[in-house]
């Protein structure tokens, strides 16, 4: 029997303090490999044609019920180094990671902002849902992460994009009230995808989440200010920490009267109610409308997704 993965002292403390967290199930979830998944690229070929091509190659595909063009893949060859990946017919992406862009209801012709876009998974997904029409702004502050973003947009055949390199916290200074849709998939402690990298849980320190939560709130407010009236915003993380999930959304509601949280509960996914209070912090009751799943809920990534509308 393999040794259980050791959690850092800070993470053990955090897990004990989250009332609905089952620590042993969390440990088990992060020892399992994440399901192999990809989106079929309909910007290059018809979905059915690509699926047929992959099945003729011997791959087994099963649709992801909550994401258009998403498939669970069973293949003996390396999907990431396959011809189909390199040619841009598929984009490898975790199944829960497809939920934020899918929830945003982007439409062809929309003006859309992806505020923290690298490496481009959700940008390419939105381009696909926009059918390459409208304007897709992919922003990334990190010079190191810009190149893979541009490469992935190219590989996927996205022609309605432009890439900007701006600190997302300042984006609204020159683009307020500009976009129909905004996605802000913020940098986070990634505790929901620790199956990819165990060092995340072995070295986790609570100062990481404390620092990130302030950045996340600033990004969320900037993203919200970029929205037109009636526009939609998705805030997402791949972590389980209330300070990075419930807290920024609750604080946005305090800061912006026109922000309205919409209910997001896809029936095909197991999810749980976000917390109303944690460690002496009280969150706004509307936060309970957000989507939250721990890694063991669907035996995939842990994710938090908030769908927010800008009212008058």
């Amino acid at each position: 029997m393999s040794r259980p993965i050791e959690l850092s002292d800070d993470l053990s403390g955090l897990m004990e303090g989250i009332p609905d967290m089952e620590v042993e199930l969390y440990r088990e979830a992060i020892t399992r490999p994440l399901p192999e998944c990809a989106r079929v690229n309909t910007l290059k070929m018809q979905e059915a044609e690509v699926v047929q091509m992959l099945e003729e190659r011997g791959w087994t595909l099963r649709p992801v019920p909550w994401a258009r063009y998403g498939y669970f893949i069973d293949s003996t060859e390396g999907v990431g180094s396959s011809v189909y990946h390199m040619a841009g017919l598929i984009y490898i992406q975790g199944p829960l990671s497809m939920l934020p862009a899918e929830s945003l209801d982007v439409r062809p012709g929309d003006r859309v902002l992806d505020l923290c876009a690298a490496p481009g998974s959700k940008s390419t997904q939105m381009a696909q849902l926009m059918e390459n029409r409208g304007v897709l702004v992919c922003n990334e502050v990190s010079t190191k992460r810009i190149r893979p973003l541009i490469s992935n947009l190219q590989r996927f055949g996205v022609l309605n994009h432009l890439v900007t390199q701006v600190d997302g916290r300042r984006f609204s200074r020159f683009a307020s009230h500009t976009f129909d849709r905004v996605l802000v998939d913020v940098p986070c402690s990634s505790l929901g995808i620790a199956a990819k990298d165990w060092s995340l849980v072995r070295t986790y320190s609570k100062t990481v989440s404390e620092r990130l939560s302030r950045l996340q709130l600033s990004l969320l407010i900037s993203a919200f200010d970029c929205l037109r009236e009636g526009g939609l915003l998705v805030y997402s993380t791949c972590t389980v920490h209330p300070l990075e999930n419930e807290w920024p959304v609750s604080n946005l509601l305090e800061e912006r009267d026109s922000a309205e949280v919409l209910s997001l509960r896809p029936s095909v996914l197991k999810s749980r109610s976000p917390l109303e209070e944690w460690e002496g912090l009280t969150f706004r009751s509307e936060v309970k409308r957000c989507f939250k799943a721990y890694p063991y809920d669907n035996w995939a990534e842990g994710f938090f997704v908030a769908l927010i509308r800008r009212g008058r």
Binding site: V135, V137, I146, L159, L162, V163, T164, V166, F174
Partner: peptide
């Protein structure tokens, strides 16, 4: 590269543009 007219026009209205269009 190729792009769309509305993308090109929009690129002139915002800051920090580092890439437009598909090679």
């Amino acid at each position: 590269k190729v792009s769309r007219v509305e993308v090109l026009e929009f690129s002139r209205t915002i800051r920090g543009v580092v890439n437009v269009g598909l090679y």
